[in-house]
Structures are given as structure tokens and as C-alpha cells.
Design a protein around this nucleic acid. Sequence first.
RNA 1: GCGGGCGUGAUCUAGGGGUAGGAUAAGGGCCUUCCAAGCCCUUUGCCCGGGUUCGAAUCCCGGCGCCCGCACCA
Length: 538
Amino acid sequence: MDKYEKIMNLAKRRGFIYPSFEIYGGAAGLYSYGPLGTLLKENVKNLWRYFYVLNEGFIEIDTPTLTPFEVLKASGHVDEFTDLKAFCKKCKKSYKAEDVKRGDKLVCPSCGGEIKETSQMNLMFSTILGEDRKAFLRPETAQGIFTDFHLLYRFVREKMPFGVAQIGKGYRNEISPRQGVIRLREFSMAEVEVFYDPKNMNMDPSNLKGELPLVVDGEVKKMDLKEAVEKGIIEHPALAYHILLAYKFMVACGIDDEKIRVRKHRKDELAHYAKECWDIESYSERFGWVECVGIADRSAYDLTAHTKASGVDLCASRRGEGRIKKKIVAKLNVLGPIFKELTGRIKEELEKMEPPAEKKEITLDVDGKKIVIPEDGYEIVEEKESVERFIPHVIEPSFGIDRIIYFILEHSYVETEKRGEKYNLLRLPAYIAPIKAGVFPLVNDDRLCKIAKEIEREMRLEGLQVFYDDTGSIGRRYARMDEIGTPFCITVDFTTLEDDTVTVRYRDTTEQERIKRKDVPSFIKNQISESLKNIFND
RNA sequence: GCGGGCGUGAUCUAGGGGUAGGAUAAGGGCCUUCCAAGCCCUUUGCCCGGGUUCGAAUCCCGGCGCCCGCACCA
């Protein structure tokens, strides 16, 4: 049995994650989170929020997964995702069917033979809103952010740069989803769209401290980020910063930093919207290097596309450089007496015009009427342009939550021996662990049980997920907690009856210490929050 | 989507045309003063559908799922 199987066995047995709808034979690419998996996933999402919403100060939103056709048409997904591919068995090459169509036959451009084998490449799930409005389940959460850009830009009071985060489901109708939880048809993603002014990134270069294992020319090299930007390996500092942040997040999740690398996309593997893209990959014994995060430079691609398609201006403003612009200003005291009630319309049309080089009579067409404006009916005014409109650029860190959860399990899974017996545990960081503490009476004695149950209740009311257990031997109960990664166990023993102390047992060392019974909730909370704060102290 | 292999409780596995067995886990009880102890009892299963047959978990066909290779992977 390989590690993947062991982990998936554990995951199923202990309620982390397992194939969905199994009583009906299951469905490829669909997995469910059980009770512990749901807690674990929630902790991962909250850690992510800690990074991006709390630490970075990005705003978080929640938009529909059902997305009208026009949105994904504009974004390029309809055309880029819908492809009939023709596969030539002889040449082992595939082509876009429309490129090799000859009459009603598909002909292989390489060998000239007829191609019979085709496959539908549409990766989006289509559906219908109401009677007949075409729609899709979103393939990424990003479009819900782009299409609200104007509202969000106003919400942040028009400051640049700003980030918008979203956690939610995405859907891709994979032709053949192998690789278990690595390739899902419905999956959770956490995405940020960072909007910035390409002429003014507002990036503090001191944020680029540190070396990352970059894959350059197929080789992994530890490289200083500042150097990577200077050498043009990473296109610009904001992109480098987000690569670093995403890397730190992965490590904070408990993923082995020896098994993380950062790889630049080749030109031919870039998504249609991306100008440059870096993947944070993690290594699995079963699957090899797997993409967990993609950090893409989407430039102005999406906002430009949606501005064009919707007609809504998705621009931002920057303080201008004081360019001088001429414009026409109507003199109402002259025009009013001449044109009476038409004056308002005339002013509107007149001021829309490009000013003439020299002052002269202007002939205007207003609502089908020819109007002649006398030379003294307007002025040409010179104005300094104080704002400039531009379409913001976007950096998008996009996290595959389910893959990250798989890697958390794989990398925290430890096989050891205890008294000659196999002993397995999950070394999850305390803030990731689904259960924070086991609470036990040393033996099944009414007095001890009563106190242990009281402690359990106190901890729950303090917001801690804990697990009370009084069955079997104490060793067995520790083992059960170790297997699901519970970092602490609280045990009530006979000494508790005398001095009101209990033992805290640490998962990774199995060592114990005594603390005051009344301090238990705050002690555990401190342990968790201290380890969380340490993430950013390096 | 193509070719090959596989499908037995929650997990691991034995068997195999005639009442499906074990281990682990789980539940109940006894015992138990710190790391999967012991004893007694108990629950859960042949992927689904069709065919062959007196009788199918077993043989055949189809589907679904999993694994391997090819292809695909925004």
C-alpha cells in the first residue's frame, strides 16, 4: 500500500475526506469532507484569511457560482474552453477540429489520413437560468470580482493598490479525472485579485526578503527574490511579493518546505488571460510535483475585456501629470437669448466637441437641426488635467484548497513505532488541527469523569474544538488523538482531586506537564495563538 | 476518450457455482492510577444491472468506480 492509499484510508476511516455518493457507485472527481475534514478545511480557510484579509488588509467578497454566458464569453472562457479536438492515432497528435476540417471530414495535417477520433474539450459545466438564459458554473471565482470592480473600487475609496479575496467553489468538467483528490470536478479555491496601477506599484522593496526554490531552465535553484526581479526572471516586484506570500502560506499550513518549489510557466502553457504565471508546486510520493497555487499576472486583460463587452467603464484614476487640455465652454449669456429653450441641448453638444484651432463660427447638428454658433458664443479654455483614467492591472494568487489539504495530510503523516508496534500520527500545526485537545479521565471513575466533562464544556464555550473520551485504556485514547493530529491532551487524574491540577500531554513529544485546571482553556488558546503569530516573525 | 488490471463490512484481507471466514476498527459490559493491555458479548460486507443456471459473491455481458499506460489537464 502506498502512502496515498494509507492517507486516504485514514481520511475515510476518521472522517476527513472520502469519495462522494459511494452507495450509488460514486462519481469520479467528487469528494466529500467528513466531520474532521470540514473542521480542517475551515481552519485552512481561516489561516488563509489571516494572511490575506487580516495581514494584507484585503477585502473579501462572495459571488455566485452560477455565471451568465455573457460574462464568460467576455472573459474568453467560452472560446478558450470549448474545443472539439481531433486526435490522430497514427501520428499521436491532436488538433483543433475546426483547423483540420475538410468538407465534412477531419483530415490529419501530418499524415493526410482521416481522423475518426474526436473529443469534446469543453471544461465548463453549462446550465440554464430560468427558461432559456445560458449560463455556466464558474470555472474560477475571479470573474465575480472583475465584474464588480467599479463597486469595489469605490468601496476602498479609490485607493490603489487594493486586493479582493474570495473563497468558494469552482467547477471544471474534467474529461477523465484521475489522481483522486488532486483532480476534482468541483473544488474549493481561494483567490485574490490584486488591482494596481502599473505606473505606480507602491511596492516597498524591503518586502522582498528571502530566498525561494525557483525552477529556472528545468533546475531548482534557491534564489534571492530581489535578484530574481533584477535579472528579469520574475517580471516585477509585486508579482515576486505575492509568490513569497503564497509560499509562506503553504509552509504555515504545515506543508514540508523541502517539498515546495516555485515554477514559472512556459509561454505555451500560459492560460489565455495570463502574461506570466508562477506555480507553487508541492511534491507527493504518488503524484510527483503538483500545482497548489498559481500566481498569475493577468495584466489589464479581464477589466479590458469586460469594459468592452459590457460598456461599463472599469477604470481607475491616478493623479495626472498636469497635461494641458483645451475644451469648449459655452457662454450661456450669449446663447440663451438667441436659442431660448434649445440652449441646454446646444451647450451639451457644443461642449462635447473638440475645440477648433482658432475661434470661428461653429455649425452644430442638434437633434436634426442645424445650429450656427457665433464666434462669441463660446470660449476655449485651457485646463490642467488632474486625473488620468487607466485600466488597473491584476495579480492573481489562486489557491487550490483541496490540493493543499491533501498535501497537509501527506506531509504531516508520520509513521513511527511504539513498543514494537506501528504507530501513526499527523503532525498538524495546532491552528490547523481539527480537534485542539482531547479531554480524558485517567480511568473511568465517576469523580474524574465529572471533572473532565466540566473541562470539556468550559473549553467548548471558549471556542475550542475538543474531544471527550473515557473508553478503553488511556494509551488507546492518546493514540486516537494522535492519529487525527490533535496537538494536546488534557488528562484528569487522582492528583486533580487533591490540588486541582491536570496534565497536558504534547502530541509530538508525548511529554506531559501539570497545569492548573482553571488555566486549561487559556493555556491551550495561548499555545495556538502564539504559534500563529510566529508565522510573520522571521 | 482508447488499451490492460482490479472491485468481499468503516479499514485490511481469505475464499470461491450450494449457509461468506479472519484481523483491525466501532458499540456494550467487566477490569484498568498515563501511552493501541486483557476477558465476555454485539453490529456492519461479496460495486450496480442484466444474462446463463435448480441455484451466481463466484461464469458471461453492460454500466459505475479504482489502479496502470496513452491522450487531455484553461
